[in-house]
Structure formats: C-alpha cells, structure tokens
C-alpha cells in the first residue's frame, strides 16, 4: 500500500516533508557535530601536537605516541586496567546470574529483594567511593574490626599496592551486580516455561535445566551485560580518583588508563600527550568489543 502522504502529494510536498525532516533532526545533529564529531577529529589532531598552557597547538608528528609507548606508566596503567576488568567483569556477571536465578525461582518478596539489590546502581559513584574508603580505613575501618573477630589482623587496604586494586575491584563488583541482575532477570523471565516443562517430563533436574535451558536461552542478555561491563570496566575512574589519594603508596599500582588520561590532560596540562592516551583507550575498547562480537557467534544463541 502506498502511504497516504505520497498519494496526496507530488514532489513539492515531498520536498516540504524533507525540510520537516531536517528541522526535526537539526538540533541533535548540530549539537553532536559541534560537541562530539568535531572534538573527535580535533582530539586525533591534538594527539600529533604539543598543546601548551594557552592551548596553542604545534604539530610534532608521532612524538606523543613515541613517548607514550616508551614510558613505563602506560604499561603499568594498562596492566592495572586489565587486572581491574579481569577481577570485576567475570565475577560481577557470575554473581548477577546467581542472584537473578535465585530471585527467578519464585522467591517470595522477589520485587522487594530486586529493589534492594538495585540500590548501588542508582547511587552516585563519588558517594559510594567515600563510604567504602571509610569502611576500608586502616585505623578505624569497620572491615578491620570485623576481621578482628575472626582473629585476622587488619591492613591498610587502600594504601598497600598488594591490596588496593583488589579493594577497588570489590567496590566495582558491588556496584555492578544489581544492574546486571535486573537485565538478566528480565531475560530469564522471557524464557518460555514450556522448555522447562518438556525437560521435566524427560526427568531433567534443576541444575541440568539451568545449564541446558537457562544459560543458552539467556546468552543474548549475558552478551549484552558482558559488552557493557567490559566497556565501563575499561573506563574505570570515579572510584579510583575518590578512593586512592595522591599520597597513597598504592597510587601507581591503581592508576587506570582513564586516570592517566585525566592527570595528564587536566592536572599536568599535557593535553597533546593526553589526547594520544585517549586514542589508545579508544583502540583497546574497540578491539575488545570487536573480539566479543566475533566470539559471540560461538556461544550466543538467538531464537
């Protein structure tokens, strides 16, 4: 069927309608062009420049990249960021699946529990970081007091390079479980009960059902959660900035890539160098996202 519009109109009307189209998309398109597309290009240009305190840029070719790849800082920050991702993403998703599965088993008070689990997801990361910093406090922190009950001696968690990143990662996991759980629970509730009924007739137990029905049927949601968790994990900043002070002995062993970017861009004023770091972050995230999209063909099942 032809649309009412084209029946009524000739090319003059189509032109007028196209004008309406441009009118509707103009604010977003112009806004994104000015504040995102142009900055994207300028940032690439800056990464080949030295940008001084007065923001005058002079072209220096690949010097920023050369300096970046020859500094230990970059490799240290890359390692820290990868470790953070490795600590938070698998465990954060595993716990989210666990909680979602438990809530999905017709637990009474399901929606109240779901709300409580979701609380960290709505809370300001800066505030979360302050609270955890207090919990981890080496002298008066409640964590050390709690451990004392079991005869374990406390530590200065955020001030020791052996524990600081793990402590931050725990906060990362704590923050992400509820959010991921809500997405996974919605996915589980979308699985047709007929699969489970059929499996029960065949005599399958609860665990068999979980691994052979729930997990495969849930794989698109798991994939979504995996991608978003990876992307935000690689960009960890707020909690580290708030929890690890400049004087902390764990400062270097927790500096993430975005932290490295921020310090250079806005603390030290090395904007050209920082631009190169941001391009490096972009490439890493892009690579990991692409790898996931290729790998998903092996394990994600779409109906």
């Amino acid at each position: 069927m032809k649309s009412a519009l084209s029946r009524r109109t000739g090319s003059r009307h189509q032109l007028a309608d196209a004008m309406w189209g441009y009118f509707f998309v103009a604010p977003v398109v112009i806004g994104l062009a000015v504040f995102y597309a142009f900055p994207f290009l300028q940032n690439i240009y800056f990464s080949f420049c030295e940008v001084d305190r007065f923001n005058r840029s002079s072209f220096i070719g690949l010097d920023n990249y050369r300096e970046m790849f020859s500094s230990g800082e970059l490799y240290q920050s890359t390692g820290n960021t990868f470790l953070y991702v490795l600590l938070t993403v698998p465990l954060g998703i595993f716990l989210a699946i666990l909680v979602a599965a438990l809530l999905n088993s017709k637990a009474r008070g399901q929606s109240a529990l779901r709300t409580l689990y979701y609380l960290p997801a709505i809370t300001m990361p800066a505030a979360i970081a302050m609270v955890w910093k207090w919990i981890y406090n080496g002298n008066y922190g409640v964590l050390n007091e709690f451990l004392k009950v079991f005869g374990v001696s406390g530590r200065n968690w955020l001030n020791e390079s052996a524990t600081a990143l793990i402590a931050v990662a725990v906060v990362g996991i704590w923050s992400m479980v509820g959010y991921n759980m809500v997405i996974l629970l919605a996915g589980m509730q979308g699985i047709s009960p007929s699969y489970y009924e059929a499996a029960q007739i065949d005599g399958a137990g609860a665990l068999a059902c979980f691994f052979h029905i729930t997990i495969p049927m849930l794989s698109p949601s798991i994939f979504f959660v995996l991608i978003t968790s990876l992307i935000s994990g690689f960009q960890v900043f707020d909690t580290i900035y708030m929890m690890i002070g400049k004087t902390s002995l764990a400062y270097e062993s927790t500096q993430s890539l975005v932290m490295l970017f921020y310090r250079n861009a806005f603390d030290y004023g090395y904007k050209g160098y920082a631009s190169a770091v941001s391009i490096y972050i972009f490439v890493i995230i892009l690579l990991f996202t692409l790898i996931q999209f290729v790998a998903q063909k092996k394990w994600v099942h779409y109906e």
Partner: peptide
C-alpha cells in the same frame, strides 16, 4: 562507539 574521554579536551 567512542569512549567519552576522546571528546573531553576539545569540549
């Protein structure tokens, strides 16, 4: 597709 740090300095 682009992480937000990329835009920050020019913004």
């Amino acid at each position: 597709m682009v992480p937000s740090q990329i835009f920050l300095i020019p913004q």
